[in-house]
Design a protein around this nucleic acid. Structure first.
Lengths: 229, 229
DNA sequence: ACCAATCGTCACGCGCCCTTGAAAAATGAA
DNA sequence: TTCATTTTTCAAGGGCGCGTGACGATTGGT
C-alpha cells in the first residue's frame, strides 16, 4: 500500500480523531479539517489522494466544498467520499449535483469506511499497484496478471480466475485469518451503490473453491468468510 | 470505550446522584439537568453522546423535551433513552411521538440501565469499535478472527467456537472478574428483544467450558457468571 | 448475429447450531 | 440430614444459514 494521503473533513472532533487514528494505523497519511473552508486550503496544499467529506458542516458545507474542489483544475479529479447523516439524504445530495464519487450514510463503522476507501482508491489509481503479488501458504495471488499460482505436489499450476472472483480472493487473502462479512466484502470488491444480494458472495466463493481448492477460504457461520492462515 | 458524554435528566436529586455516581465510576463523563429546559441548554452546550430522559418533570416534560431535541438540527440524531414510571406508560409515550430510541420503565436497576446505554451507544456509534483482541491469563480472544488462542503446556492451540459461544465468551472476558447475570448477557449477546430463556446461557457456558476448559468461566450461584481474573 | 464467458438471482435441501424442557446433581440454609 | 433453590446435563426438534445447481441477463469477442 503505497502511502496514500487522505483528507478527512468533519466538524465533530471525536469522530475525526477516531477515524484518523485508525487510518494511520492502517498505513495511510492523514490530514484533517473541521470545515469546508479549511478543507479547500489543505487540499490545495498537500494534494491528497482522496477526501472524506461530511455533508453538514459550518462555514462551508460538504456539497459546496465538493463543487469547489471540482471547479479547481488541480483538484477536479480528486476522489471524494461524502458522509451524510441519513441514508435518505444521499439522494438529495446527489440531486444537488455535488458530484462525489461515493456516498455513505452515518453512522458508519470504521471497517465499512475503510472498505469503501480501499475500493475507491483502487478504482481511481489503477496504475498504483497495491501489492502486486500476495504470497500465502502454498499459493500466490498475482494482481498484475489476474493469475493464481499454486504448487501442488512440487508442480506449479497457473490458474486463471474471472475478475470478480479474483478480486474477492484478493480481498480475503489480503487479511489472512480475519473474518470479513459479506457486506464488507461487497463494499470492498463491488464498491459504491451495490444493489446486490449478499448471497452473491457465496456463489463466487464457491466458484473460487472449485478452481483453487476447498481449504483456502473458510466459512464462519453467521459471520462471514476468512482466508485460512 | 472512549469517554462518552452522557446527559442525565431527572427531577429527583437522589436518583440522579446515584446514577451519576455509577456512570462516572464506569468511565463515562456525566452531565445532569433537573428539567427539560435545563436539559436543552446543557445539550446544546456540551453536545452529549446520549441522553437519559425522565418522562415526568416540571417545567418541560420528557416528551416535549425529546421533540425539541429532534427539531434542532444539531441534536436531531442524539440517542435518547426515555424513563417512564409505569411499564404501561411506555406505549402511551410512544404514541405521542416523542421518538426516543429506547424506553425503560422505572424502577430500573443500574445494571439494566447501563446495559441499555451500552447497547444504544454501540448502535449509534458503530465507528467506535470493540477491542479486537482480549488478552487474558493464558488465553486470547480475537474478535477479528473469531478465534481463541490458548497456551497449554507451552503449546499454542487455536480453537474455533460457533458464533453464539464465541460472543458469549467475549462478553464475559471483556469484564474479567465482574459477575454478569443471564439477562445482562442475553441483552448484550443476543440483542434486546429476544424471547430466549435465560437457561440457554447455561448450555452455551457448558459448551464453551467443554472446548476451552473449566476454569475460565466461574458460576456465581443466584447471580450469574464471571470470567476468572 | 452468434457463441462463450461472466455475473447475479433464486430455490431447494442439508447440516450445524441453537433452543428448550425435564431430569439429575449441586449448593446453601435450617 | 432434609428440603428448597439453582445449576448442570442431555437429547430431541427445529430453525436458520450455507452450499449447490440451474437459469436469465449481460458483456465481449469473432
Amino acid at each position: 500500500m503505497p502511502d496514500f494521503k487522505i483528507l478527512l473533513v468533519d466538524d465533530e472532533p471525536d469522530l475525526l480523531e477516531l477515524v484518523r487514528y485508525n487510518l494511520i494505523r492502517d498505513g495511510y497519511t492523514v490530514f484533517t479539517a473541521a470545515n469546508g473552508e479549511q478543507a479547500l486550503k489543505v487540499a490545495a496544499e498537500v494534494r491528497p489522494h482522496l477526501v472524506v467529506l461530511d455533508v453538514r458542516m459550518p462555514v462551508l458545507d460538504g456539497i459546496e466544498t465538493c463543487k469547489r474542489l471540482r471547479d479547481n483544475r488541480d483538484t477536479a479529479d480528486l476522489p471524494v467520499i461524502m458522509l451524510t447523516a441519513l441514508s435518505q439524504e444521499i439522494d438529495e445530495v446527489k440531486g444537488l449535483g455535488a458530484g462525489a464519487d461515493d456516498y455513505i450514510a452515518k453512522p458508519v463503522s470504521y471497517r465499512k469506511l475503510e472498505a469503501r476507501i480501499k475500493s475507491l482508491l483502487r478504482r481511481a489509481y489503477p496504475e498504483v499497484e497495491q501489492e502486486a503479488v500476495l504470497r500465502r501458504e502454498g499459493i500466490e495471488i498475482d494482481r498484475e496478471k489476474y493469475l493464481v499460482r499454486r504448487t501442488v505436489q512440487g508442480e506449479e499450476q497457473k490458474l486463471h480466475l474471472p475478475k470478480k472472483q479474483f478480486e474477492l480472493l484478493y480481498a480475503l487473502a489480503s487479511k489472512p485469518g480475519v473474518v470479513q462479512s459479506r457486506e464488507e466484502l461487497l463494499d470492498e470488491v463491488w464498491g459504491e451503490d451495490v444493489y446486490v444480494t449478499p448471497r452473491t458472495v457465496d456463489v463466487h466463493v464457491r466458484k473460487i473453491r472449485d478452481t483453487i481448492g476447498e481449504h483456502y477460504i473458510e466459512t464462519v457461520k453467521g459471520v462471514g468468510y476468512r482466508f485460512a492462515e
